[in-house]
Design a protein around this nucleic acid. Structure first.
Length: 583
RNA sequence: GUCCCCGUAGCUCAGCCGGAUAGAGCACAGGAUUCCUAAUCCUGGGGUCGCAGGUUCGAAUCCUGCCGGGGACGCCA
């Protein structure tokens, strides 16, 4: 149950009653009415702005409306007290039994706790990583991979039907360069002395494996061949091999996209031609000359007629080229085809996760989707800022040219997939993130991964001790049946209320496409649990395990298991495995 | 020149489809350990929410302008 949504319904009902009684006019728009937890807990459990929002359209004073509404709410189930405060807030305090019932509910739901039907099964496509298949994934790709995957998990939790996709950029000049670079390594593998890798080629050692594998499969047959003959073969071979490694590395991070769409096969299947026909039919393509870009001018700029998409008709700043001067399609034209393809597959809502350096392409791609789908599809874009890698406070320099970049695989081997995933979500995605290889392994409150995992491990520890010391007590799911009336301490109730926020966090984070909120919520929940734990140090009557009071102990075990389940539910959303103990 | 993102405590950052006295961690000062893991917890000081206007019953949050930092700007992907 989402407590806040539930009581919003209660407020709506009370408003309807006031309308029926002639104390409010009919047809009021209640869209802006909210029921939220007040920032200050002393104001109560729930707070609504209904009276302030509706006062003006109803022609009443806020306090006056609030009093009338409060009167109705006093009769509602589980409501203990109702107070009107400040400019017209209505603060509700709920019965302790209502909150205790949440514990049983959480235990029944287990890992599913927090699931929402906000999405109502609507199809959403989340596309992320989509790195060029020209080398291994690096730390730079890790953030997009985690943010995209966690967002997908979050939307699933919120009731959307999510598809996770990867767009393979296997067309264009970069993969030709890859082919030529791999061909050098192929000759090298067959005993040729290739010397320095020429500028403009990919220098990385990882291509030796590609060259070696090709030599093994095909032998020397391409040595004397023309480039036009060997290039497509080498290119296809290299892309296949590198994509296998990309998938392997993503798998190690717990990222497993179900659809991989090849740019090249889309183009070869004529998808771009279809885009052109669609645009031409709507008069959205023309031949024109663009203004030179202001600021930094390319040295070889010259005005030139081009095939342009009328992007300005859909909110972009300038019209965008679709064809290169050699007649081939621009990347943008191909990408339009891909997004149209997603629409054809039934995705009216699409989310792309991009690096912040692609920020300049947001408007044009959104314009393209609007144009191609006649406004039936919506494209949202989540931008991810850079990750600054350091070790013990000293920056780790990364340069692709010198080959001294840290690969995703190395990162996972060094700190573990769970740590990588959690830490990548400790900042909102459009803010720069510092990733310190030493700090993320530290066992202190300063390290959120540890802090949250420690809370989970502590819950497990209590439950293990209970099973040993008081084996006759219920364990696991049967805890949902125990009497909870013994949970009366303010810290216990506060923790339950915190857990009751989880369904709300899921909905709000999903609505905002901000998976980092899950990590922040888990940190807060862990903090609440650690606080309760230590309270039992000061006051022995608050300890979880009391051998002389099995009934109360059972209630507290239920609470501990609920905390554990909520943490596990949150970690599952962001794809992190909860730990049983810390060593 | 145009567009996008950012500017909140000494430091790192939450909070932003408007809501009551703006939060957390670190750092700093003090305190809690026969105990279910002190790997934790509690208390305290610390703020012109970049600046100036506007909308509103109410603005860190929305709008406009400016200042400062970053990024992008025809045939790279």
């Amino acid at each position: 149950m989402n407590v806040f949504n539930y009581f919003r319904g209660v407020v709506e009902t009370a408003l309807d009653e006031l309308v029926a009684a002639g104390r409010l006019p009919k047809g009021l728009d209640t869209a802006k009415v909210t029921v939220e937890p007040p920032r200050d807990p002393s104001h109560g459990d729930l707070s609504t702005n209904a009276a302030m929002v509706l006062a003006k359209p109803a022609g009443l004073k806020p306090r006056e409306l609030a009093e009338g509404l409060a009167e109705r709410l006093r009769g509602a189930g589980s409501v203990e007290t109702v107070e009107v405060a400040g400019p017209g807030f209505i603060n509700l305090r709920l019965a302790d039994d209502f909150w205790r019932a949440r514990v049983a509910e959480i235990l029944r739901a287990g890992l599913h706790y927090g699931r929402s039907d906000l999405g109502a099964g609507q199809k959403v496509n989340v596309e992320y990583v989509s790195a060029n298949p020209t080398g291994p994934l690096t730390v730079g790709h890790a953030r997009g991979a985690v943010v995209g995957d966690a967002l997908a998990g979050l939307l699933e939790k919120a009731g959307f039907a999510v598809a996770r996709e990867y767009y393979i950029n296997d067309a264009g000049a970069q993969v030709d360069t890859l082919a030529r670079s791999a061909y050098l390594r192929y000759r090298e593998a067959l005993g040729e002395e290739i010397g320095e890798i020429p500028p403009g080629m990919y220098p990385g050692d990882y291509l030796k494996e590609v060259g070696g594998a090709l030599a093994e499969r095909d032998g020397p047959r391409w040595l004397e061949a023309d480039e036009t003959d060997w290039l497509p073969v080498v290119r296809g071979f290299a892309i296949d091999l590198l994509m296998r490694q990309v998938k392997r590395d993503l798998h190690a991070l717990g990222v497993n996209q179900s659809v991989f769409t090849s740019e090249r096969s889309l183009v070869e299947a004529g998808a771009v031609d279809e885009v052109m026909r669609t645009l031409e039919a709507r008069d959205l393509v023309y031949i024109g000359v663009l203004e030179p870009p202001k600021g930094k001018k390319p040295e070889d700029w010259e005005p030139r007629p081009q095939t342009l998409f009328r992007a300005t008709a859909f909110g972009d700043d300038v019209d965008r080229p679709l064809r290169k001067s050699d007649g081939s399609w621009t990347y943008f034209a191909n990408d339009m085809a891909y997004h149209l393809d997603k629409f054809r597959r039934g995705f009216h809502r699409q989310i792309d996760v991009w690096g912040a350096d692609h920020g300049g392409y947001v408007k044009r791609m959104q314009a393209a989707v609007r144009a191609l789908t006649e406004e039936q599809a919506r494209l949202e874009i989540v931008l991810c800022q850079l990750v600054k890698l350091s070790k013990g406070g000293i920056e780790v320099k990364m340069s692709k040219r010198s080959g001294s970049f840290v690969t995703l695989r190395e990162l996972i081997e060094e700190v573990g997939a769970g740590v990588v995933r959690f830490v990548m979500l400790t900042r909102k995605s459009d803010a720069q993130l510092d990733f310190d290889l030493e700090k993320v392994l530290e066992q202190s409150r300063d390290n959120p991964v540890f802090y949250v995992q420690y809370a989970h491990a502590r819950c497990r520890s209590v439950l293990r001790h209970a099973a040993e010391a008081m084996p006759h007590l219920p364990q696991g799911p049967t805890l949902a049946q125990v009497g909870l009336a013994g949970l009366t301490d303010s810290a216990e109730l506060a923790l339950i209320k915190q857990m009751a926020h989880w369904p709300r966090v899921v909905e709000q984070a999903a609505f905002a496409c901000e998976p980092h909120r899950v990590a922040f919520y888990l940190y807060d929940l862990a903090s609440g649990f650690h606080a309760l734990w230590t309270k039992g140090k000061d006051d022995a009557s608050l300890r979880f395990l009391l051998e002389e009071d099995p009934e109360l102990t059972a209630a507290r075990l239920a609470l501990v298991e609920a905390v554990r389940a909520t943490i596990a539910s949150g970690l599952q959303v962001i794809g992190v495995q909860p730990v049983e103990e810390l060593r």
